[in-house]
Simulated scan of single mutants.
Amino acid sequence: MKHTIYYDPQDYISINKISLIGDFNNWNSGLNFLQKNEKGVWSTEIDLQPGEYRYKFLINNLIPLNDPLANLYLPKDDGELASVIIINSEGEKLINTEKYTVNIEKYHLSDEVHESTPKVHKRIFQQTTKRVVSRFEFTNVTGIHTISLLWFRPNGDFHYSSENILYTSEKEASKPTVMWFWLNLIGYEVPSGIWTLKLFIDGAFILQDSFTITTNTYSKMDQKFKISQTGAITDVVI
């Protein structure tokens, strides 16, 4: 029976093409492509027999993201978390109605991996800096989630993405979970200018921020920030 799978990027990423990759096509990015309609929503139909299938979207043949509408995510054989679709014996897609939560309690940029919260949210990094480190502190985590961070160059081109699995046991539920992502600068072709990072949870866009990589020193321009109730980042000058 054919089933339609949708993806709505809402202009958070510039997309040329989207491939659907999964167990049903041996994770081959050249077999199932999504088409974009007049409302900007991408979709494709796929014929699935009863069973359980893991899958992802591959955007521009570069960026793997989970399906925000799946609401069920399980590890592949290699440990990577993937979206899951289950088809019952009647050919119907089963829907997981369980509600899960993730809260971003704190977020900072710095040039070191800090166990505790950095006092300064850096905005300016020299090219001679070892790396740009993003630190996220998550609370109220229920379920298992994919945290994806995408880095974009000053000209808007995609640089690379990194992905981690977020899960908190019941015993640790009251404690914040800290996660780091970083952009290595030394030994890599990293142009100066204003860079952008975008955070996705289970394939859904959550947060965007920018920072500058320069050949000069502007330590006085470092800033603190807070996340507003709407999730937007608001700078507060020191």
Rank of each mutant, 00 (worst) to 15 (best):
N71P: 00
T142Y: 01
G79E: 11
V237R: 14
N140Y: 04
I233K: 12
I95T: 07
F211H: 04
I233W: 08
E52I: 09
Q229C: 00
N26G: 03
D202S: 00
N28T: 06
Y55R: 04
K130P: 10
G30A: 02
W182D: 14
V237T: 15
K119Y: 12
Y12M: 08
G22Y: 10
T230G: 07
S19Y: 03
L109Y: 11
S174N: 08
L207H: 11
Q35G: 06
D23T: 10
L81T: 07
L166S: 11
Q208D: 12
K99N: 05
Y218L: 10
Q10G: 01
I124Q: 07
Y188G: 05
G203K: 00
S89M: 10
L72Q: 08
S219R: 10
N96C: 05
L74E: 15
E45H: 03
P50I: 09
N26W: 02
W42E: 09
T128W: 14
M221S: 10
W195Y: 11
N88G: 08
K93M: 11
D8N: 13
I186W: 14
N96S: 08
S110D: 13
W151P: 01
F33N: 02
Y100I: 08
I147D: 06
E98H: 06
K99G: 01
E115S: 03
Y188A: 11
P9N: 03
G156L: 07
R54T: 04
N66H: 06
I5L: 02
G156M: 05
I227G: 03
G203C: 01
L48Y: 12
M179Q: 15
W180G: 08
I95W: 01
S174Q: 03
G40H: 12
G79I: 13
V41C: 04
V41H: 02
P118R: 01
M179T: 15
Y100M: 04
D202V: 00
E45A: 05
R123L: 15
E90C: 09
R123M: 13
T168Y: 00
D202Q: 01
W151R: 05
Q223M: 14
L207D: 01
G22A: 11
D235L: 15
K130S: 13
P9H: 02
H145S: 07
T146A: 14
S43F: 09
L109P: 10
S89R: 15
P191S: 02
L20Q: 03
T230K: 09
N216S: 12
R131K: 15
I165C: 12
I213T: 01
A204V: 00
E163D: 15
A173H: 04
E115L: 07
V132L: 13
L197M: 15
K99D: 04
E112A: 09
L183W: 14
I18R: 01
E170R: 05
F33E: 02
N61L: 03
Y73C: 03
I5D: 01
P118Q: 00
D77G: 11
R54S: 13
E163K: 14
S110Q: 06
V236H: 06
Q127P: 01
Y53Q: 06
T142L: 01
T215Y: 09
L69V: 00
S14W: 03
T139M: 02
F24R: 07
T4V: 09
I21K: 03
F205N: 05
E92M: 11
H114Y: 13
I194V: 14
Y7G: 02
T146S: 14
T168W: 00
Y73D: 06
F181D: 12
